[in-house]
Design a protein around this nucleic acid. Structure first.
Lengths: 70, 70
DNA sequence: TCCAAAAGTGCATTATAGCGCTCCTTTCAT
DNA sequence: ATGAAAGGAGCGCTATAATGCACTTTTGGA
């Protein structure tokens, strides 16, 4: 999960929920500037920041053992 | 995924692979101090730091839409 | 038992994530 | 076409993640 992919995932989900960056930032209790950077893959967010977004977006961060491509 | 759970997940995986904190820190190219803090749930790591660990541990960070408990 | 390796922690420093402010660009409904 | 809403970005400040060093505590094999 690299910054670019994280940003796209969050942006896609936000658009599905039909809310603006401003709304998501407020609901997530984070700065608008920070959310913009994350969505554009231009930040290296902390676990806490990612969790705030996951909560509001109805998503969850998971860690799996990487399974070999069959 | 809260800091405590993240730490336990990493520690468990490290022990399965039978390597020391020192080894994992070196292989992951991060400070030993940092790894210790993460394993003990006493840090709020960045995405980059988590990715370094995921790579060496053969794991991956995923984001899923939270499915309602049935 | 005991001791060496491994793990945990206090402290100080450095690097950078998060932030607000400001302004510019893009999008899209009228 | 155009204006308002939404999104993007430069700048500088503050809080804190990452780090190394020194030390203590825990653990497990001989």
């Amino acid at each position: 999960m690299h910054p670019d992919k994280l940003g796209q995932t969050i942006k896609n989900r936000r658009e599905i929920l039909a809310i603006t960056q401003r709304d998501l930032a407020e609901l997530s209790n984070m700065g608008l500037r920070t959310l913009k950077a994350i969505e554009n893959g231009k930040s290296n967010p902390t676990l806490e920041t990612m969790n705030k977004l996951m909560d509001v977006l109805g998503m969850e961060l998971r860690i799996d053992v990487r399974t070999p491509k069959v």
